[in-house]
Simulated assay, not measured.
Amino acid sequence: METKRTPKNIFVQGAISPDKIAKSIANHSTKTDIGGHSIFLGQVRADQKEEGKVIAIDYTAYEEMALEKAFEIREAIFAKYPLSCMHIYHSLGEVKVGEICLFVFTSSKHRKAAIDACEELVERIKKEVPVWGKEILGNEKSVWKENT
């Protein structure tokens, strides 16, 4: 009997802590069939805009739709690549410059699958998952961010 997989909550309130990243990596040391991991960390940049300098990004999402879309992407990537595991964490709320807002972690028996899957996963998350970022500027203004 096949078990129906359900969407996992990928959202973290605020920045993704270095401790969370380290713990996630450490949790894989017992999985001895893994030969390669690929990790992407998205960090908030201090971009200089016409309106002012970015000091943080406030992330919002249409959560139900975003979780469904992330699940759909996750299932497609699992079907395409021979992965052992995959983790996606995306911030909601305010994340300051220099902090981590996206953590994508793929693992497989061989490095190429982990690397290729991680890259495709990041690109699809940025293009397809309904998450928006409002850049907070040092002059108390804000502008909506466009994903590129």
Rank of each mutant, 00 (worst) to 15 (best):
D47M: 04
H37N: 04
S29Y: 09
S38E: 01
D19G: 05
S38W: 00
K20S: 13
T32L: 10
I21Y: 08
E51Y: 00
V44Y: 03
K31P: 08
I25E: 14
S24A: 08
A22W: 01
H28M: 10
I25L: 07
R45I: 04
Q43H: 14
Q43E: 07
Q48M: 04
E50A: 12
I39F: 11
I25A: 13
D33N: 04
N27P: 00
H28S: 11
S29D: 02
S24H: 15
I21M: 08
D19W: 15
G52L: 02
V44I: 06
E50I: 05
K49V: 13
K49N: 12
I39H: 11
I25P: 00
K20C: 14
K23T: 14
K49E: 15
K20W: 04
L41E: 13
S38Y: 01
G35C: 06
K23V: 05
V44K: 09
I39C: 13
K49Q: 13
H28T: 05
G42S: 05
I39W: 15
H37K: 00
P18R: 04
D33F: 13
T32V: 07
L41V: 13
D33C: 13
H28D: 09
K20V: 06
R45E: 04
E50M: 01
T32R: 09
Q43G: 02
G35W: 08
K49P: 03
V44Q: 15
L41Q: 15
V44N: 13
I21N: 15
I39D: 07
V44W: 14
D47S: 14
G36N: 06
V44G: 14
L41M: 13
A22Q: 11
T30R: 13
V44D: 04
I34A: 00
E50T: 10
A26K: 11
K23G: 12
H37E: 08
G36V: 07
F40N: 14
